[in-house]
Structure formats: C-alpha cells, structure tokens
C-alpha cells in the first residue's frame, strides 16, 4: 500500500517536472530548427538535423560580449550592495532602539506598495540632473537598496535569540563587530536568499536599462533580446536562440550555487 503510494507520488512528481521543463525543451528544440521548420505547425520538439549555426548567427547579430559584461558587472555590484545595505539596515531595525524607527520602517515598507513603473520618469529625471545617464551609476545606484531585502533581513535578525545580544554586549563587543562576526554569519541563509533575489532582479531588469542608457556600449542582455523580437524580420528560431543565450547564465549560476541556498534551509528565517 505505502509502496504503491510512493510509486504514484514519484510518477506525479516526475510528470510535473517534465511539464515544468517543457517550455525550455521547446525553446532549445526550436532554436535548432531551420526557419522553415520553426514556422511550420508540428508536434516535433527537436528537429532531425540540429542547426547549431543558429547560435553562431545569433551571437554575431548582436554584441553579446559587451551585453554580458555590462549585465554581470551591474548585477554583481548590485547584489553585493543590496546584501550589505540590507544587512546593516535590517540589523538596525531589528535590534537597535532609536527615535523614528517605526515610522522610518513603515515608510520603507510603503515603497514596496508602489509599482516600479510609476517611479520610472521621476528617477530618470533625477539621474539626468545628476548627469548619470548612460553610465554604470545609473544602472547600479538606484538599485543598491530595496525594501523587501531590508524586511527579510530584519525578520531574520528578529528570529535570533535575544540572549546572544546580551551576552555579546557584556563581553564588550560593539554592534558592528557583533553584526560582522556573530549575527551576520548566523543569518547566512537569509543573506544568500537576499543575494539571490538581488541578482535575479538586476539580471532580469529590462525597462530601466533601456530608458537609462542609450549607447550600445552600455546595453545589457535583456535589451539585446528585444532586438530579436521587435524587428520586422523576427525569426522564431533565432529568437529562441537569443532567449536561450539570455537564460543560460542564470541557470548555470543557479546550478553552481544551488547547494548554498537550497541546502541552507532557505525558508528557515522567513516567518511572519
């Protein structure tokens, strides 16, 4: 009985997994088809003769090297900055007593309630006034802190037993050293989570980079992707190649880093 249940469970889970990955398989399959095959209705996912040169064509059609360099540079700096700013602010909001704490925290949470699209023009005007258009500063600085990450870090710090703080204070350990050497490492799962969100958010953003930069030297990969779908000569097979190229780095990074954020009991610190 329990064995039958286990088999059934496995079958269902595998079926679900296949369904989940199907769009990716389809993307890979289509990216290897000729244009004719790609635009012919068919049940075939993979073509008979894979057109590997589609990837060469796609990579040559746009300067992906520059795009990837920019994207990664921006994403890594943003990730690092978000992690640091939210660690610091999260700790302060969770453990320090200072006037205006509740009000400030509420205002920070309020910025989560307004959609990004609304802030686009004011922010663009601002970076123009600052002379930041078409610079890395424009792509990076506005995203170096966000409310959600601060909220998550605050929750994580609040989850730590109060005794730790008292013990450390008695030992004469200041807040900064305590944060850096004791509390920070204790909330590592949350740090990894916050970093992951920050990285994905930065890597996948499209509208802001498009508006904030103009020259090809400052373009990011998501903008590169629009060049394949917006043009009148849209070709499904090359479009799928471009999508695969854009998706590949995050997937690779995820496979490389998954043990950190999955094994470290990701959700442990997330509590209302």
């Amino acid at each position: 009985m329990r064995r039958a249940e286990a088999v059934l469970r496995m079958v269902l889970l595998v079926a679900g997994a296949v369904a989940t990955t199907f769009p990716f398989l389809w993307m890979l399959g289509t990216s290897l088809k000729t244009l004719m095959e790609a635009t012919t209705p068919s049940l075939r996912v993979f073509p008979e003769t894979p057109q590997w040169h589609n990837y060469v064509d796609t990579l040559q059609a746009a300067p992906f090297g520059t795009y990837f360099f920019n994207t990664f540079l921006v994403a890594f700096i943003v990730t690092g900055s978000v992690t640091v700013t939210s660690l610091m602010a999260g700790y302060a909001f969770a453990r320090l007593r200072f006037p205006g704490r509740t009000v400030l925290f509420s205002i920070i949470l309020a910025t989560m309630m307004i959609p990004f699209e609304v802030t686009l023009i004011p922010n663009f005007v601002l970076i123009t006034r600052l002379g930041w258009t078409d610079t890395y500063a424009a792509l990076i600085i506005p995203w170096c802190a966000n409310a959600f990450s601060i909220f998550l870090m605050r929750q994580a710090f609040r989850g730590l037993p109060v005794d730790f703080y008292d013990a450390a204070t008695i030992d004469g350990c200041g807040h900064l050293r305590f944060l850096a050497w004791i509390a920070g490492p204790l909330v590592k799962p949350m740090v990894v989570t916050v970093a992951l969100f920050a990285f994905l958010g930065s890597y996948n953003s499209l509208v802001w980079p498009l508006v904030a930069t103009s020259t090809p030297e400052m373009r990011v990969v998501q903008v590169g992707l629009t060049m394949f779908s917006g043009a009148e000569g849209v070709q499904f097979n090359l479009l799928m190649c471009a999508a695969a190229i854009v998706i590949a780095p995050t997937v690779a990074l995820y496979f490389a880093a998954q043990r950190y954020f999955l094994e470290s009991a990701l959700g442990a610190g997330i509590k209302g």
């Binding site: 700013t85 602010a89 700790y91 302060a92 920070i108 802030t119 170096c144 802190a145 409310a147 900064l176």
Partner: peptide, 27 residues
Amino acid sequence: DTPIAVFLIAPAVTILGVFGVLPLILS
C-alpha cells in the same frame, strides 16, 4: 543606540529616500 543606528541605516535610507520615496511623493 541612535548614532550607530544612523550609521547603519544611512545607506539604505538615502537610496530608498531618493529613488523610492521621492518618486512616490512626486507621483
């Protein structure tokens, strides 16, 4: 804890104030 708190929240509050709250008020 005010001095250290100001130090800790300053980066986040500055960025969120300028690129989050300000546009919100303007909106």
